[in-house]
Each structure stands twice: as structure tokens, then as C-alpha cells.
């Protein structure tokens, strides 16, 4: 669990749940931590709380 702290966090944003599923499954195989969001609003709110994320 401590290792996860250092793993980069990827936030996936898409309004289509199917796209999230495909992107999430694919990126997860690369070993990243993943967060998902269905709207830009949620994404911004989430980003304000967590700094080390790369946006999609």
C-alpha cells in the first residue's frame, strides 16, 4: 500500500461510461493509480483536492 503513494494518479474524464471502462482497463495494465470522472466540473473539484494527477 505504501508503494501506491508513489504511483502516479491518472484521472480519466469522459461522459461515456464505456470509454471510461476501455481507458481504465488499458491504463490499469500499465500500473497507474486511476480515478474516474464523468464531468469536467467533477474533474476540477477532484484536481483541487489532489495535486499529483495527470488529466485526460
Amino acid at each position: 500500500m505504501t508503494d501506491l503513494e508513489e504511483t502516479p494518479l491518472v484521472l480519466i474524464t469522459d461522459d461515456n461510461p464505456n470509454n471510461i471502462k476501455v481507458a481504465g482497463s488499458t491504463i490499469a495494465t500499465l500500473g497507474y493509480k486511476i480515478a474516474v470522472s464523468q464531468s469536467g466540473q467533477n474533474t476540477i473539484e477532484f484536481a483541487e483536492k489532489n495535486i499529483q494527477i495527470s488529466l485526460f
Binding site: L9, L11, T13, K33, I34, N42, E45, F46, N50
Partner: peptide
């Protein structure tokens, strides 16, 4: 709610 952190 809103954006969801999967590991959480």
C-alpha cells in the same frame, strides 16, 4: 461523489 478514485 463526482470524480471517483478507484483505489479509494
Amino acid at each position: 461523489v463526482g470524480a471517483v478514485d478507484i483505489s479509494e
